[in-house]
Amino acid sequence: MLDLARIRAITLDLDDTLWPVWPAIERAQAVLAQWLRAHAPATAERYRTPAALRAIRDQVERDRPDLGHDLGALRRESIRLALAQAGDDPALAEPAFALFFAERQRVDLYDGALDLLAFLSARYPVVALSNGNADVHAVGIGRYFAAALSACEFGVGKPDPRIFHAAARAAGVEPHAVLHIGDDATLDAQGALGAGMQAVWINRTAQPWPHAGPAPATVDGLGQLHGLLR
């Protein structure tokens, strides 16, 4: 299903591909809540429930559509708005977000992730390509990547073909020479195919392919990629 002879570079999603994202987000939210209780108690009390936090995030998404591609900026502005509405100092959003962001980088890699990164990076230039705000250097895996590209830096996110093409340029190859690997059927697999790349879909939960036409090469975890790419 893959034309291995065409592959000259790899682009690789991060969240829910190399690690599960929600445990990291939940830890970061807990650390943020603890910090707010100490430094902005009115905000901590007003936004102590998941529903209240979701409502403030939804409001920022409605009011600031320009931030739709930048999850970090959305989080920072949500904190700033929560502080202002609760009567606390909005300037506290900066240290609060810095704390959240640092904790968000503390991820638990899936089994086999480091072996896969070593395998891929020994054979190809590897470019991280993410709609999220993980930092491969802060996570501790930057040595495996030739470059990293995120939606917040580039201005648009997957599945827009422009960000895939920018990642190919960062790897120094044409899009047809790239294999993209990711967990999202639409953002990753279909997006890469639409950009003229090959794709591997990591489908850990045996979901049906949601698009017309045949599914791309599909695996149920990182361990199967070694055999697929040999």
Rank of each mutant, 00 (worst) to 15 (best):
D188M: 06
D184A: 13
A177P: 04
H176Y: 03
L193D: 00
V173W: 04
A171H: 00
A189W: 00
A171M: 01
A166E: 15
D188R: 02
M197E: 04
H176C: 10
A185Q: 14
H165T: 13
A168V: 02
A177M: 06
A170W: 00
T186D: 14
Q190L: 13
G194E: 03
A189Q: 03
D188S: 07
I181F: 00
L193F: 15
Q190N: 13
A171I: 02
G196D: 06
H180A: 08
A192E: 11
A168M: 10
M197L: 09
A192L: 02
L179H: 01
L179S: 05
T186I: 02
A171C: 07
L193K: 03
L179G: 05
A166G: 14
F164I: 07
M197A: 07
I181M: 13
A189H: 01
R169Y: 14
P175A: 11
V178S: 02
G182E: 12
R169D: 10
G172Y: 02
A192F: 06
H180W: 15
L179A: 02
A185L: 10
A192R: 03
M197H: 08
H176L: 12
E174A: 15
L187N: 11
P175G: 14
A170N: 05
A168H: 07
D184W: 07
R169P: 03
A195Y: 01
P175E: 09
A195M: 09
T186A: 05
A192G: 08
T186H: 07
A166L: 09
V173A: 05
G172D: 01
A192H: 04
A195F: 01
A166T: 04
T186S: 07
I181D: 07
H176W: 12
H165P: 13
G194F: 15
L193G: 10
T186M: 00
A189T: 13
G182P: 11
V178T: 10
H165D: 07
A185R: 09
D183I: 03
D184G: 11
H180V: 06
G191V: 04
H165G: 10
T186E: 13
A177S: 13
G182Q: 11
L193S: 01
D188A: 03
G172A: 00
H165Q: 14
L187K: 08
A177C: 14
H176V: 15
A170C: 08
D184P: 04
A167M: 12
G194R: 11
H176T: 14
M197P: 11
D184V: 05
A166Q: 15
E174N: 09
G196E: 05
V173E: 06
T186P: 00
D183F: 08
R169G: 05
D183R: 11
Q190G: 04
A177D: 13
A192Y: 12
D183A: 15
P175S: 02
A167K: 09
P175R: 14
V178K: 05
T186R: 10
A195I: 02
A185K: 10
T186Q: 03
P175F: 07
A171S: 05
L193A: 05
V178W: 03
A189P: 03
L193W: 15
